[in-house]
């Protein structure tokens, strides 16, 4: 069910402000693509444009094409809600719904859309998703406790379970480990390894070791200059980016001489 994504000549605006300019890339199916770059260079903005989440911010819009499964997701007759059902997202800060239990949080994508399902099916979705997110063993005896009763790392894995419970084609992760300790981080990295056999994963990270550990391809974003829009500097297999990048600025960033 995983799909690849083709991005061509994408410009992203906030009102009149051009935030990201001229991005073209191909995100391969069933692999992990990491986006790195300094703060404010538009990685997160680009990531959010991949499931039309940036439209939540008033005045935000894009020019260009993002093609998934042969359809341009910015065509006029495409429903952003449908896009988000097939492209899930995990955020920087874990955000389980505070009014719901762990069980209800996992089912939120189904329940909030009023999908009726028998109890046995709901149970099996919850178990499968929590197992997929490596959280089942830790919470199986307290599924009715509130989601906010978990630790930060567990909450983040709960959010991943919630995202994969609706069985999206693509999973976007916006710095999913930046609020977590090393042990939770390693749990989530293991999880990403497991998930890539079923999902196309795009992950934004500030942690270069993490990008090197989890991804097959890496895209380096940078600002063209102060006050100028962000752009994609280089997109290559991770091993090449980290050993022999094409662009000198990529090498400068990765070796720590910049940013």
């Amino acid at each position: 069910m995983a799909k690849s994504i083709d991005v061509s000549d994408l410009d992203i605006y906030y009102g009149d402000f051009l935030a990201v300019e001229g991005v073209s890339m191909t995100i391969r199916a069933r692999s992990v693509t990491a986006l790195i770059g300094p703060s404010g260079c538009g990685k997160s903005t680009f990531l959010r444009s991949l499931n039309r989440m940036h439209e939540v911010i008033p005045g935000a819009r894009v020019d260009g094409k993002i093609v998934i499964d042969g359809q341009n997701m910015y065509d006029a007759d495409v429903d952003p809600v449908q896009v988000r059902r097939s492209v899930g997202m995990v955020f920087q800060r874990p955000n389980p719904f505070p009014t719901m239990s762990i069980y209800e949080n996992v089912l939120a994508g189904n329940r909030l859309n009023s999908k009726r399902m028998p109890k046995s099916e709901a149970d099996s979705i919850v178990e499968k998703s929590l197992k997929g997110a490596n959280l089942w063993e830790e919470v199986k005896n307290r599924l009715n406790k509130p989601g906010s009763s978990l630790s930060g790392g567990q909450q983040q894995r709960l959010c991943i379970a919630r995202a994969i419970a609706v069985e999206p084609q693509v999973l976007l992760m916006d710095e999913p480990c930046s609020a977590l300790d090393p042990i939770s981080t390693s749990a989530i990295e293991d999880l990403i390894h497991d998930l890539k056999s079923d999902y196309t994963i795009v992950i934004v990270t500030h942690n270069m070791q993490q990008a090197a550990r989890v991804s097959e391809d890496t895209g380096f974003f940078n600002l063209a200059g102060a006050g100028k829009p962000g752009r994609l500097v280089e997109m290559n297999p991770t091993s090449k980016i980290f050993s022999n990048p094409d662009e000198p600025s990529t090498e400068a960033y990765i070796s720590g001489r910049f940013g």
Binding site: M53, V56, Q82, G88, T99, A108, G109, V166
Partner: peptide, 24 residues
């Protein structure tokens, strides 16, 4: 963040308001 979490699950805005924002 809660609204965005809901949108990212493919929940329409009005359902987000009714089922996430108002209960919270």
């Amino acid at each position: 963040e809660l609204r965005e979490a809901s949108y990212a699950l493919g929940v329409p805005k009005w359902r987000t308001v009714v089922k996430v924002v108002l209960p919270t």
